[in-house]
Design a protein around this nucleic acid. Structure first.
Lengths: 121, 121
DNA sequence: AGCACAAATGAAAATGATTTTCATTTTCGT
DNA sequence: ACGAAAATGAAAATCATTTTCATTTGTGCT
């Protein structure tokens, strides 16, 4: 965990939700931190790899990031405003496991995302 | 509905699932069609606006497209050799729908991928 | 057919997020 | 303090996508 990662985590804590790399960089600069955009991207990438940060995509393809508290969960993402809700995934876990077993796959993992338009949009 | 849109729809039919703009363009060229990448993007955009085509984003941010109403399916992908099996997804569909309804989301879609290591690896 | 005007087309340039390169600086172990 | 390794960031590169703009094609009208 290097300095950039600590700065990025602290700004993510302050934000308390999703933000893009560029937004986070701006926020850091405005709050007096000295950090390059490159380092923000690098820190985010490494935090995502370490599963400390969740990465999603807005409809326009821009990546947005947020601290992820829990171990494994799924999101319901609004296509229009990007707001997200964490959803319960035990049915999905079971399904993924069943499908994998049926075909003899080992070391199973999965990716799933549900999207739609939220009530307020 | 112009020529480009017709070409794009026909190649999407042939593909029968998701594909990126660049992939679709390559496929069209290989099958002897003459069409520019620009026109593929324009046709896709207009088909998405008309709700004839669904647009999603892969994790890397690239857009992928598929005909709306195309019976979509999911894959079980081998992490080691990359081979894929189509899997049955009705349990997943139900789950996605239930989760979305529970939170009042409309126009619901989802993405799911299961990965593991296949028997022969 | 011939003409005018709108729509379509695509090559090339522009855009914008993200990644890579690379030279410099900082950190750390000895 | 010294040298190796890691971190940093500015600038360049990348890559999907969009925009521009000049040219071609299609359409309606006479």
């Amino acid at each position: 965990m290097n300095k950039s990662e600590i700065k990025v985590i602290s700004v993510l804590e302050r934000v308390g939700g999703f933000a893009s790399a560029q937004q986070l960089h701006q926020l850091l600069l405005r709050s007096g931190e000295s950090i390059g955009l490159t380092s923000v991207y690098r820190a985010l990438q490494s935090l995502v790899d370490d599963k400390i940060v969740d990465q999603l995509r807005k409809e326009d393809g821009e990546a947005i990031y947020r601290l992820c508290g829990e171990a494994h969960h799924h999101h319901l993402v609004c296509k229009s405003c990007g707001s997200t809700v964490e959803i319960e995934g035990s049915a999905l876990e079971k399904w993924a496991k069943a499908m994998a077993e049926e075909h003899g796959y080992r070391e199973v993992g999965h990716l799933a995302e549900v999207f739609g338009i939220c009530p307020s949009c």
